[in-house]
């Protein structure tokens, strides 16, 4: 394997290749998918060569991409849509809200609509206000839509196989674009000084600890692109301040399933939720509300949330770093957590 083929983008690519090879109902629909270009982030590279009949490159028509996939799914196909940047997903919002998710629900019968929408979200690449956002919070409130976020500890093929082949309802998969160029850690039991545990099948929550999964004082909950920042914060908190934390990287954003998470939080009683998107009405809002309910009486301090602080993501990398949540802001929030009683 060439060094570059170790990266997460190649693992996704191989997973999609295998899944397409196994099941003729799987279609790829999206912009600029054809080789040699192979998609803006190269996730679908090679697919159009191997499956020329089933990879459909489209005009710049996000609503139609999802709409066509929805119709094909109603008629028995298992389409996978690539939305080039998550920021463009707003154009397809109605198709997701009023069509793909509605059909199985409002027809009140065995009507499946197994579409999978994959899209890269997230900043830290200097792409500016309309190509860097983390907009998943606008989609997690859509009933009937499963929203999952890929993370490096997630076994890749099982994750995509579940969404594409094993579910009958629409799935939205958030791929943080920074992750494409990182190596997957899908099988590791240790990551640096962290021990890694995984909870769940197919869609995995990863729990990491530098200590022993028993004596931590704080639980950091995150998903997707904020994972590395949380891990580095956990490391520095332990080295510098002897504050031990466990980091939970959740794979599923919606529907919310926090039983295992609540159990982990109950050990510490102090919870911080980190997300890259803007905070108000965010992913963390719902998680915090549900965890507060589940942990009432066990919380030692109000749940803290860390999120993007600016209403728009600046193009300048320096400015972007200032407004996106960082290791430092997580550490500060943990200090706040520790100081409150």
């Amino acid at each position: 394997m060439k060094p570059q083929e170790r990266l997460l983008v190649h693992h996704i690519n191989r997973a999609l290749t295998r899944i397409m090879g196994e099941d003729e109902r799987v279609l790829m629909i999206g912009e600029d998918l054809l080789d040699p270009y192979g998609g803006a982030f190269k996730v679908t590279k090679g697919l159009s060569t191997q499956f020329p009949q089933r990879v459909h490159t489209t005009p710049i028509s996000e609503a139609a991409i999802v709409g066509v996939a929805t119709g094909a799914a109603l008629r028995g196909m298992r389409p996978v849509c690539e939305i080039m940047f998550g920021d463009f997903l707003g154009l397809a919002f109605d198709q997701i809200l009023n069509h793909a998710t509605k059909y199985p629900l409002m027809y009140a019968q065995e009507v499946g609509c197994p579409i999978t929408i994959r899209t890269p979200m997230g900043g830290r690449r200097g792409y500016g206000p309309t190509h860097s956002q983390s907009l998943e919070k606008f989609f997690v409130g859509i009933p009937g839509l499963e929203v999952t976020a890929l993370h490096r500890f997630q076994p890749v093929e099982a994750f995509y196989r579940r969404a594409i082949l094993q579910r009958d309802q629409p799935s939205l998969i958030i791929e943080n674009k920074i992750m494409y160029g990182q190596e997957p850690l899908d099988t590791v039991a240790r990551y640096g000084d962290f021990q890694v545990r995984r909870h769940g099948q197919d869609v995995v929550d990863a729990e990491l600890s530098l200590t022993d999964f028993a004596h931590e004082e704080v639980t950091l909950i995150t998903y997707g692109g904020m994972t590395d920042h949380c891990l580095e914060a956990a490391r520095r908190l332990l080295l510098d301040e002897e504050i031990a934390s466990n980091v939970l990287v959740l794979g599923r954003l919606s529907p919310v399933q926090l039983e295992a998470t609540a159990a982990a939080c109950a050990r510490t009683g102090r919870v911080l939720i980190a997300e890259e998107g803007t905070g108000a009405w965010g992913i963390g809002s719902e998680w915090a509300a549900q965890l507060t309910d589940a942990l009432w009486g066990k919380l030692k301090a109000p749940i803290q949330r860390v999120a993007c602080t600016a209403p728009v993501l600046p193009n300048s990398r320096a400015l972007e770093e200032q407004v996106l949540p960082s290791t430092d802001t997580i550490i500060q929030a943990v200090q706040t957590l520790m100081s409150r009683t």
Partner: peptide, 16 residues
């Protein structure tokens, strides 16, 4: 919205 869905359905029928 149904217009896109119909086109998708036609795509599926064509594949099948």
């Amino acid at each position: 919205g149904i217009v896109a869905n119909a086109v998708g359905a036609a795509l599926a029928e064509k594949h099948a």
